[in-house]
Amino acid sequence: MKTIFISALTLVLSMTQLFAQSDKYTQAMTTTVDALNQQEGKQPDMAAYQELANRFERIATAEPKEWLPRYHAAYCYTMLGVMGDDATQKEQRLDKAEAMLKEVETLDGQPDDEVEVLKAFVAQGRLAIDPMSRWQTYGAVFGEHLAAAKAANADNPRIYVLEGTSLFYTPEQFGGGKKVAKPLFEKALEKFATFKSPGATYPQWGKGQAEWMAAQCNQ
């Protein structure tokens, strides 16, 4: 009797611990993703993104089967990869983002469109480091990933945020400029209005940027 009681107790205890662990995950993810979403549309803050990347990475190491913390860490590193002016550091951060995305791809549950969009963002970051020499290589990679994202889910608004940003910085003579970029940001914002995120901890980024860029297009 005593043994049964103890075993049951141990079981309950370990169960609660298990629940506690998953509770911990949800709680940690919710607060961290919230903090990340707070950064959206703000002046880019390297220290803040590094701190967020660290938090996501810690969750990722504790939860080897979850793709989301890895995805968000990859996003933070991509953002870090387009900030600052040290080419070597930018390259290292984008390398890190790519490594994280590789891990994401081995896990269950990750949506293809989001991963492809982020890969395109990484390519855009690489291109920006040395556009003169890298256009041929990374311009193509950028296009490929966006095409793959569209094939998976053409309603993902982030596709159009990246597409618009790329056009925004392309000279008018060559099919770029504010005029052609603007409809893409508008399209992105429309898609954001109807886009149903599967959960609060899923990717949310891009809306702030689309709003800001759309405003720039009107100037």
Partner: peptide, 19 residues
């Protein structure tokens, strides 16, 4: 090294270094 990730492996416990 500011912004380094310091944590206990396999747990949620950790932090980033300050400036």
């Amino acid at each position: 090294l500011p912004g380094a990730n310091v944590f206990l492996k396999g747990t949620y416990d950790g932090t980033s270094t300050d400036t």
